[in-house]
Amino acid sequence: MARRIIKRNRRELDQGRRFFLTRAGILSGSAALLAAGGYFTYSDQPLRHRAEPVADLPDFRVERSLHYPMLAIVRGSQVDAMVRQAVEKLGGIGRFINKGDRVLLKPNVGWDRMPEQAANTGPEVVGAVVNLCREAGAGAIWVSDISMNDPQRCFSRSGILQAVQQAGGEVVLCDKEDFRVANMGGDLLKQWPISRFVLQADKIINLPIVKHHSLSGCTLAMKNWYGVLGGRRNQLHQDIHTSIVDLANAFKPTLTLMDAVRVLKRNGPSGGNPADVARENTVIASLDEVALDSFALAFLGLTPEQVPFLSLAQRRNLGQVDWRSLHFSESQIG
């Protein structure tokens, strides 16, 4: 004990030239560092400007071909065969997916509902498309959506999680860190946070389901792009038709495959009552979302005049409302 105190109290030599010069040197150096620190951090702004990088959205479409139809409508009872047939009519999966491509599938998985309630894209449809992508040699097959209800429940209870895992794909859910701001270039939507998987994918396949919607009349392919948005997307209702067109303008998928096997005719988009669901047993593949949405209106008893976003989209050259004017194919199997 005593020795420790002596050690601590031993005084430094605090006089003489050497002491003065070293101490003065240390102090001047510290003063210079302080001044330099002040100089380099000085600002007339209260905060440092943090520029968030803004991504540009790629165009995921493949080259147009006069050889294949723009719209392939397949009716039947075997969902897997119908999906294959629809894609085959448009040139086969090989036209859209190359070996090693990272593919993002965007079904509608908005709600904690069962397949029979038809509030989400059918698990058979999603599973069939995952299978096709796998056969085409895709490097990664991601299935993702930003759900309205709890995402884990939505994917699990819609049967999509199980279907995707069985077919060899991967369900990827977005947490708060998984959003990137992207240029939307729309009339209303300028910049908006979107799922990072959109920016990291090589190809995107849109997998909407046909549903009634109380504000826009219907939820189809173009409106399905709500599901890659983060941020305050519930504000888009305030001008829903312009928003939908802006989304269709920003997101240009490789392929769109619409599930009209079960159709939610009323109480959309969340539904819940199986009595509101009717079987239409149809799958449609398309390269023109406007034409596709226009075609699907018939399931809901709507006409293009009742759905303003269709003509708005045509005016922005996003596609044809009059789907019959395009090269299309209709077939029936099984």
Partner: peptide, 19 residues
């Protein structure tokens, strides 16, 4: 201003929020 997000998300069938 149009909105009715509340009606959209209402889970009951028929919906408890109507317009």
């Amino acid at each position: 201003t149009p909105c009715i997000v509340c009606e959209e998300v209402c889970p009951t069938s028929p919906k408890a929020i109507w317009y």
